[in-house]
């Protein structure tokens, strides 16, 4: 244990005493080094491991078990085998509706939101006075995204008497209740999602700053223009961050809940047009007291997202460039 690297004993002390730290690298025997590295890694991961086992894994396994039962929250669970899963795929039309609604939502709103966020991050990165002011302004909607007040605000915009209709009225278009019509309700939620692009924008901004300025300087010596800079420096170096945003936004959008819950009043209406997957799961679990079924839905969702994320990771080999790769 004495041979193990420094981090261990010194967590409370910010700076490792040099002799001790040096000691770990004196013996650069391959085996002991990788072993000491593993030890260090596990120590760095210690809080995460505790959290994983105490708070995350247990409930996950519990929910897996529950998905094979008829658990209702209010009474004991009974084993029902694959019934829940069978019902999901064979009988439940609303399950399929919710998948369709969610897929549309993800496929449309994620690329839109990311494009928006990246575009604004580029505009707001450098070269203009008052950028910090603009950045804050453009972030504001995201602060509001999950607020209860959104239900009203969205109606003020897309309602029959909303501002969109007043604007269209100028062109003689007759009002339409965008939020409450089954054909358009989902689109107002997509706009809501794109509107709250602040989180990926901030991550892009942070990512842009990771790109060494010196690269641009070198490029300008070579006489590269803006577009070429963007294509050959910014974009490639930003790919890990684009990738991160893509993976996370896909996961998050598949789990979207609050927007529909607030705007539709909790039922995914009108006529299930905004019935997000997790909203349906929530309805099943907490309103219809079919927690077993809801747990099954959660695992199906996990598999779907995991598969998509897997595809994302596979694809990333072809377009994501890491600084730590040589």
């Amino acid at each position: 244990m004495t041979l193990s690297p420094a981090p261990a004993g010194t967590t409370e002390v910010p700076v490792t005493p040099p002799e001790k730290a040096g000691a770990s690298h004196l013996g650069r025997l391959k085996g002991s080094r990788s072993r000491s590295q593993a030890w260090a890694a596990y120590l760095f991961l210690a809080p995460w491991f505790i959290g994983l086992f105490a708070i995350t894994i247990g409930p996950m396994i519990a929910s897996l078990y529950l998905s094979f039962t008829d658990y209702s929250l209010l009474s004991e669970a009974h084993w029902v085998g694959l019934d829940n899963y069978e019902k999901m795929f064979v009988q439940d039309d609303r399950f399929m509706t919710s998948l369709k609604v969610t897929t549309t939502y993800v496929v449309v709103s994620v690329p839109l939101q990311l494009a928006f966020a990246l575009g604004l991050a580029l505009v707001l990165d450098r070269g203009l006075r008052g950028l910090s002011f603009y950045r804050s302004i453009f972030y504001l909607p995201s602060l509001l995204g999950g607020s209860v007040a959104i239900s009203i605000l969205w109606r003020k915009i897309f309602g029959v008497d909303g501002i969109v209709n007043s604007f269209l009225g100028l062109f003689g278009y007759e009002g339409h209740g965008w939020v409450t019509s089954p054909d358009t309700a989902l689109w107002t939620l997509i706009i809501l999602h794109v509107w709250t692009f602040g989180a990926p924008m901030v991550i892009f901004l942070a990512g842009l700053r990771q790109i060494p300025q010196s690269l641009y300087e070198a490029a300008s010596v070579d006489g590269a223009g803006r577009w070429r800079n963007f294509r050959s420096i910014t974009l490639p170096l930003l790919t890990p961050i684009i990738f991160f945003n893509l993976v996370l936004e896909v996961i998050k959008s598949f789990q979207s809940f609050t927007q529909s819950f607030i705007v539709s009043g909790g039922n995914g209406g009108p006529v299930d047009s905004t019935l997000f997957y997790t909203l349906y799961l929530y309805i099943k679990g907490f309103k219809n007291y079919e927690m077993g079924y809801a747990a099954g839905m959660a695992w199906v969702l996990l598999l779907i997202i995991a598969a998509l994320t897997g595809v994302n990771f596979l694809m990333s080999r072809f377009w994501v460039f890491y600084g730590d790769e040589k």
Binding site: Q37, A41, L52, A62, S63, L281, A295, M297
Partner: peptide
């Protein structure tokens, strides 16, 4: 930055833990 046994597996589990909607883990939690 560090190499350790089963790193890929732990990483996948870490990602996986983001993917399960919290509505079903909330009761056990």
């Amino acid at each position: 930055r560090l190499e350790f046994p089963l790193k890929k597996m732990w990483f996948a589990i870490m990602l996986g833990s983001i993917m399960l909607p919290h509505h079903v883990t909330v009761v056990p939690q």
